[in-house]
Amino acid sequence: MTAVGETLPELSIDATPTFVVSTAIATRDFQDVHHDRDKAQARGSADIFLNILTDTGLVERFVTDWAGPNARVKNISIRLGVPAYAYDTLTFSGEVTAVDGDDITVSVVGRGKLGDHVIGTVLVTR
């Protein structure tokens, strides 16, 4: 039985250059800042960085890893903080913040070297 306050098992993601590039391409995001370090640096970034579609996808994965295949994802709302550059390690942590019948609300934070990279809320039913 899921209760408010239950914490999710942490998920650690090594944001290697390969990870940053392969997720950008898998999400059909061909912006150069996600695969070309020279261009990313010319635009003022330290390195290539994760794209937002991947952030949403990682938040979804993090919650369904815990909620299981029977869960239905209804809503994912994320706010972006500091960038997640290549060679960062993101640690996702989460906590159940509301339970209403089958509806479970989970708050999620993905934290990297520079601080909170993604802060979000996910609504699932199961």
Binding site: I13, F19, S22, T23, I25, A26, T27, R28, T54, G57, L58, E60, R61, T64, D65, P69
Partner: peptide, 14 residues
């Protein structure tokens, strides 16, 4: 494209 996504993100949801 689903396969590319789950492979890149490491999502093992069957």
């Amino acid at each position: 494209m689903i396969n590319n996504w789950v492979e890149a993100l490491g999502d093992t949801n069957p």
